[in-house]
Computed example of a mutant assay.
Amino acid sequence: MKILCLHGKGTSGRIFKSQTGICTASSLHNHQLTWIASLRSKLETVIPEFEFDFVDGPQPSSPAPDTPLFYEPPHYAFYEGTDISAIRAGHKWLRGTLERNGPYDGVLMFSQGCALVSSYMLYQQWYEPNAPPPFHFAMFICGGVPITALKDLGVHVSKEVEDLDARTKKQLLEKTTAEVTRDRWQLTDYASVVRRAQFDSDDCFGLNLNKIPAELKIRIPTVHVFGEKDPRLPASIQLAGLCDPYIRKVYNHGGGHEIPRAKDISEELAQLLQWCAIRGTWPGQDTMHR
């Protein structure tokens, strides 16, 4: 089983590998808990071989605002800016990567990696409806679909959604927390708002999921990991709402725009990735939900 791993903007494959703690078994020491250690113990009896492929984005980039100083350059991005031509150029690079290094069974992503893959899959489903999906399963961590991609695909995006998207991106750059969602949705009970927004909602943080056609809903098993303090929380939940609710799981790691490293959370994520990998490779999965 081969899993493509895509980092966030302003980091790299090497940094993403370090952030997730995915390494070879021989490098474990001092009882360090890593995703791979937990994942291997859970999957080895079901899936005998698996491989994580960490790649660098094609564009040199300045370091992300939240990248620790001990992560040395170079830093990369999959695309720069938010215009559709840049995103589509990222899609071209991804297609080339899949052709050269694939096929892949699954994909594990953080932040801009999520934006790249989710939008790529939606474009493929819309323009190549008979093509098989590029992956059998996906885990999205703190990321959403670019609003410009949704608009280009014909989805109605209100000014409210665009303003919220711009505001959360600004807060992320300024390293502030998710107060952005408290002005309208009053997240005193944010969990119920998040839960309600995922299921065919006409108000998923301003996006009407009921008016989006089935061709623009991702139909492979997915896991969506978000942090309640992440300014980009709305984008993560909107992406979850664009995936099949019957083969989807959502997990709140409790923090901000980050890859969680705590032992108990790592174990939960390993279990979620296990579920997603097994569900995505069930016989008949490729022909379901089309």
Rank of each mutant, 00 (worst) to 15 (best):
H253S: 05
Y190L: 09
V223I: 15
R279N: 12
A191F: 00
I259S: 02
A277C: 15
W185A: 03
D244P: 00
L209W: 04
L239H: 11
D264M: 13
F226P: 02
G227T: 07
I218G: 01
E268S: 13
P245W: 11
D264E: 15
Q285A: 14
W275T: 14
E268K: 15
A235N: 12
A240T: 08
R219C: 05
K211E: 15
T188F: 09
C243R: 01
H224D: 10
N208S: 14
G254P: 08
A197R: 01
H253P: 03
G280L: 02
G284R: 10
A235Q: 13
Q186K: 13
K217P: 00
W275F: 14
D202M: 11
S192I: 01
V194N: 01
D244W: 09
I265N: 04
L216D: 00
R219F: 00
Y190Q: 05
L269H: 03
G255A: 12
W275A: 14
D202V: 09
D202A: 11
P283Q: 09
E258Q: 13
L233N: 03
S236D: 12
W282L: 15
N208T: 13
A270L: 04
Q238T: 10
P245H: 11
Y251Q: 03
P234Y: 09
R248Q: 13
H224C: 07
H253R: 06
D264L: 14
A277N: 03
D203F: 09
S201I: 08
D230V: 10
C204E: 13
C276F: 01
A191M: 04
D200L: 08
I278D: 02
G284S: 06
L216M: 10
S236N: 14
L242I: 05
P283C: 05
I218E: 01
Q271R: 15
F199A: 00
P234S: 10
I278C: 14
S192T: 11
Q186P: 00
A262H: 12
Q285H: 08
A214S: 04
P213A: 05
N252V: 06
F226E: 01
S266A: 00
G254C: 09
A235T: 07
R279Y: 03
V225Y: 06
R219M: 01
N252R: 05
A270T: 12
C204G: 13
N208K: 15
Q271W: 09
I247K: 02
F199R: 10
Q238K: 15
T281W: 01
I259V: 15
K229S: 12
Q271F: 10
T188H: 12
Q238N: 08
A214K: 04
T222R: 07
V250Y: 02
H224E: 10
V223D: 01
L272S: 03
D264K: 15
K229N: 14
E228H: 12
S266F: 00
N208M: 13
G206N: 11
L239F: 14
A270Q: 03
K211F: 07
S201C: 13
W282V: 13
L207G: 07
P231W: 07
R279G: 02
A277R: 00
K211I: 07
P221D: 07
D264T: 15
T281Y: 00
L242C: 03
F226M: 02
V223F: 01
L207T: 09
W185H: 05
C276D: 13
P213N: 06
Q285N: 11
L269Q: 06
D203R: 02
L273N: 07
D203G: 08
Q285T: 12
A235D: 14
N208F: 12
K211T: 13
A240P: 01
